[in-house]
Nucleic acid binder design. Structure first.
Lengths: 197, 197
DNA sequence: GGGCAAAGTTGCACGCCGGGCAAGATTACT
DNA sequence: AGTAATCTTGCCCGGCGTGCAACTTTGCCC
């Protein structure tokens, strides 16, 4: 977690990014089966062996690009005022997760995953990282000694409806995502006791 | 979806089960890296090539055993009275998902996944199948023409808190799961406006 | 800046994965 | 009984994933 000193970490980060984007782009262009690891490393300018120092498999590299969605969301969550209700913090973060740029990325990923089902598990894993990260962020705000189940349940429910929005948005490209997030969190706030529409 | 006639389907089903359990047991005994596909097929009594007619990879076979959790839950959901509120149906099904036998299975799987991180994505995929299946079941009960976002959000939130219960139960083996499910669905019903504990 | 330790990259080698193909076996249909 | 459809199996082969041992680069201290 320490930033370490410069060049080394920076280069690693750049190499990882280069490999991730190369894999993501190749998957977009040719489909998941349309390229081999060596194609990725050629594009990224490193050797095949190096690829496996960063990722365990091709699929991980492809979905890694979406990790920035995770990073942005977590950064935002940690920056929310400490006295803000947890529910409201999550609502704000939810809006960021489904920003236009992020949705574009997530939809490209979904498109690939539709054709190549084997990618789905890795897509889900990225989301799971986000849920667990958010949980940790919330726990820090809880009064000491407070049982952790409440924030655990809250964060799972919140990211559940966020996922619902993403799924729905993929099927209904016309809908305003901001509205969907509002609708989803209204349902959540009302305990799903109103159907609204 | 048609049952087809007997022997053929039955044998396929049995072969799939045999491969799944062989893989699951081997993973429990030796860990995910402690065996190769050929070990699975030897135990199941088929050829190595046949394995790949049923699963794309070893990991899929290992988690496939948990598919029965999915099947049971879906069967139960379809059998709920049609006029029962969706929320209540999901609450009942939630109790079944975290039955003692299922939890034993899910915990064994979690244990393996803890040691062998590469299994996690496949674990998540099984859960995702359950969420989408439940959504379909709920949609059938909605009045025709009703927008599908409400049940989509509901089912994602519900399985979100179920996942929270499973995660929590893995960390706190002493807790009563039935109580956790009640607590989780109470939170959900109350829109997370009460902390309770 | 010279030199050493730590960390990262690369090529090589090798076993396993994953699946196309075609032949053989088994089941379904009439 | 005969034929079509389905499933299994062995063969084969390119790609995957990784241990290992050089080699190169970076960090650090004198």
């Amino acid at each position: 977690m320490t930033p370490k000193s410069g060049i080394r970490e920076t280069k690693k980060h750049e190499t990882r990014r280069a490999l991730g984007f190369a894999a993501f782009d190749l998957a977009t262009e040719r489909g998941l089966q349309g390229f081999v690891v060596e194609d990725v490393t050629t594009r990224a300018g490193v050797s095949r062996r190096t690829f496996f120092n960063y990722f365990n498999r091709k699929e991980e590299a492809v979905v890694s690009v979406c990790g920035f969605v995770f990073d942005d969301a977590m950064t935002a969550l940690y920056q929310r005022p400490a006295d803000e209700p947890l529910f409201d913090s999550l609502r704000v973060v939810a809006g960021l997760v489904v920003s236009p740029e992020n949705l574009e990325l997530l939809n490209r990923l979904s498109t690939i995953a539709t054709d190549f089902h084997e990618l789905v598990p890795y897509e889900l894993a990225v989301r799971e990282r986000m849920v667990l990260g958010a949980h940790e962020a919330l726990v820090e705000r809880m009064p000491p000694g407070c049982p952790s189940f409440y924030p655990l349940a809250l964060v799972h429910a919140a990211f559940g409806v966020i996922q619902a929005v993403i799924v729905h948005a993929a099927d209904h490209p016309g809908d305003q995502v901001t509205d969907l997030i509002d609708e989803a969190f209204d349902y959540l706030r009302a305990g799903f006791q109103t159907t609204k529409s």
